[in-house]
Design a protein around this nucleic acid. Structure first.
Length: 567
RNA sequence: CGGGGCAUAGCGCAGCCUGGUAGCGCAUCUGGUUUGGGACCAGAGGGUCGGGUGUUCGAAUCACCCUGCCCCGACCA
């Protein structure tokens, strides 16, 4: 490609609305342009990188025995009615009607469509297992798209769906995909970590996320210093020492105007861990839709909302208003678990606890000596607390620490959550009708572009791993003589012949401009050809970020090959 | 959804407080000089000042409404 014909509008300054480094650099280097909130054009450079990433994913997926197909972006509402998600899926699902007034939506994911397809074609267990994948644009009407390609509304995803006759087969494929993902992210040159994850609204049982470790990551993950336990904070567990309270009578104490856990502990001279914080939420969705739930955690713990959401099978939670709280018999500031009319759930750490302090649901009053199993009838427990840095590992003696991560992959065991309502049924070995169990496996392909740039950049711009770069080589013409241009052109054709993706910067620009652009774009190898060197029959080759070296004119191709092979 | 901020040329910004018909840098075009790390000189093009309503002799500037975008929060009993 000749530079003068390439649409790669580079920007000298950071765009005002870009926050993270990948967003800034992808805009500045001419890889992407915004169309509307969370929706981007991939310019030629961006598309080339996307294709390079896709190629690796395809290779590994195919190698793992999956087969590629392509499903539609527009999906009929009927299928979503059938799976039950037309109601369950929130406003992220962009719905519309076509000219015939048929309910439709833009696919945020493709379980319904794949199940519909497979249900029609699947007859015998002999056809199983099978793993079908596609690389497709998805649309999710995110509340808050941000950080460029990191969280878009329209984005490109590789999603795979496997179908199985039995659990054992599903387990095997889950492991197969887990290993495949590790290979893919390793080949992409990423620092990543698989972590145990919450299943979210998609349902199912086992699930792991693959996170690229980066400061700008939107997720918080916690991992053990000693073993390989790692989990998303949304479901992470940990060991912590809880102080033993002493067994005592339930007693009301006067706590005038003292409301926060810190203040109550200080006021009563008690360990804050003996406080019970009671947080009230209004439940949206699920069997308790519209009701309130009171969640109790220790005074020094924070509630992990996702855990609570799961515990009450909700789709979302909203902090309760003061009015909601008084409706269930509580008083803001002095709320406690006793005698509330709502659902009350305690964190597991309160199960065997004595001498706790909680709000008394009376103005200016708390109770001491609370023992949950003694004083609360039919108490319900769940893991609700958020782990804290330096907690103990739940699996070994190690300690837990936090990192930020960008979720680039997710593998799920779905079981029959979708195949059952979608009637993905086959005849098993015994001749009986049986529901296929499923796994699903996603990779955020466009998000990967951002994640890679987050890890591969320096003061001059992007620094692509050579095999992902839009061009492996850029020829920078320095001289203005015809002879120099002839040499450049000849080399350009040679490299192209050799299947090396080459950009020839033949613009009438000053050298500095060409260097800056090449480095901003992150092209790994520069070949610098000027009149001065040509007098001695040499050209310069420089790997991005390294010192240049002189090479005889005839040896350029082999030198470039060597550099690329070393990758 | 809640809170904050922004919207002026392709990009980055000033002008607004104190109303008088729009400016700077980069980019673009023309000519010239330059040419090993984002050149210089001279000239030129490009803006319904996000949209609407109002106040006023007069609105980028003041008021109200709308739209779009960015950031923060979604831990508080």
């Amino acid at each position: 490609m000749k530079y003068s014909q390439l649409l790669a509008p580079t920007l000298r300054e950071d765009p005002a609305d870009a926050e993270v480094i990948s967003h800034k650099l992808l805009l500045r280097a001419g890889y992407i342009r915004r169309v509307t909130s969370g929706v981007y054009n991939y310019l030629p450079l961006g598309l080339r990188v996307l294709r390079n990433i896709e190629a690796i994913i395809r290779q590994e997926m195919n190698h793992a025995g999956a087969q590629e197909l392509l499903m539609p972006a527009v999906q009929p509402g009927d299928l979503w009615q059938k799976s039950g998600r037309w109601e369950k899926y929130g406003p992220e699902l962009l719905r519309f009607k076509d000219r015939h007034d048929h309910e439709s939506c833009l696919g945020p994911t493709h379980e319904e469509v794949i199940c519909d397809l497979v249900a029609r074609e699947l007859r015998s267990y002999k056809q199983l297992p099978m793993n079908l994948y596609q690389i497709q644009s998805k649309f999710r009407d995110e509340i808050r798209p941000r950080f460029g390609l990191m969280r878009g509304r329209e984005f490109i995803m590789k999603d795979a769906y496997s179908f199985h006759a039995d659990q054992q087969s599903l387990n095997a494929e889950y492991q197969n995909m887990f290993d495949t993902y590790k290979r893919i992210f390793t080949r992409l040159g990423l620092k990543f970590r698989p972590v145990e994850a919450d299943n979210g609204s998609i349902g199912g049982s086992a699930s792991h996320e693959f996170h690229v470790l980066a400061e700008s990551g939107e997720d918080l993950i916690t991992h053990c210093s000693a073993c390989d336990y790692a989990a998303n904070i949304e479901r992470a567990q940990s060991r912590r020492a809880t102080p033993a309270g002493s067994d005592s009578e339930l007693t009301e104490v006067n706590t005038p105007n003292v409301t926060s856990a810190e203040d109550v502990a200080a006021f009563l001279g008690a360990d804050i861990a003996l406080l019970v914080k009671t947080l009230v939420y209004r439940i949206e969705g699920g069997p308790h839709d519209g009701q309130c739930v009171a969640a109790c955690v220790r005074g020094d713990d924070a509630l992990q909302e996702i855990k609570l959401t799961r515990a009450v099978q909700a789709t979302a939670l909203q902090m309760a208003s003061d009015a909601d709280i008084s409706d269930i018999g509580g008083i803001t500031g002095f709320i406690g678990p006793r005698a509330l009319s709502s659902l009350v759930i305690f964190d597991e750490s309160l199960r065997q606890a004595d001498g706790l302090i909680a709000g008394a649901n009376k103005v200016d009053t708390h109770v001491t000596g609370l023992n949950v199993s003694r004083d609360i009838r039919d108490a319900q427990f769940a893991d609700l607390r958020q782990t804290r840095e330096a907690d103990g590992c739940p699996r070994c003696d190690g300690t837990m620490s936090y990192s930020r991560g960008i979720e680039v992959g997710h593998v799920f065991e779905l079981g029959t959550v979708y195949s059952e309502p979608m009637e993905v049924i086959f005849q098993d070995q015994q001749g009986k009708r049986s529901v296929a169990s499923m796994g699903c496996y996603g990779i955020g392909v466009s998000r990967l572009i951002a994640a890679i740039v987050e890890q591969c950049n320096d003061a001059d711009g992007i620094a692509w791993p050579a095999h992902l770069a839009p061009f492996q080589v850029v020829i920078i013409s320095m001289g203005k003589s015809d002879a120099c241009m002839d040499v450049c052109e000849k080399l350009y054709h040679e490299l192209k012949q050799a299947d090396i993706e080459t950009l020839w910067d033949e613009r009438k620009e000053r050298p500095g401009v060409k260097f800056k652009d090449a480095e901003l774009m992150g092209l790994p190898i520069q070949i610098i050809i000027g009149d001065r060197g040509l007098e001695n029959g040499v050209v310069e080759i420089r790997e991005r970020g390294r010192d240049k070296q002189e090479v005889a004119q005839e040896a350029v191709l082999s030198s470039v090959r060597n550099l690329l092979d070393r990758e």
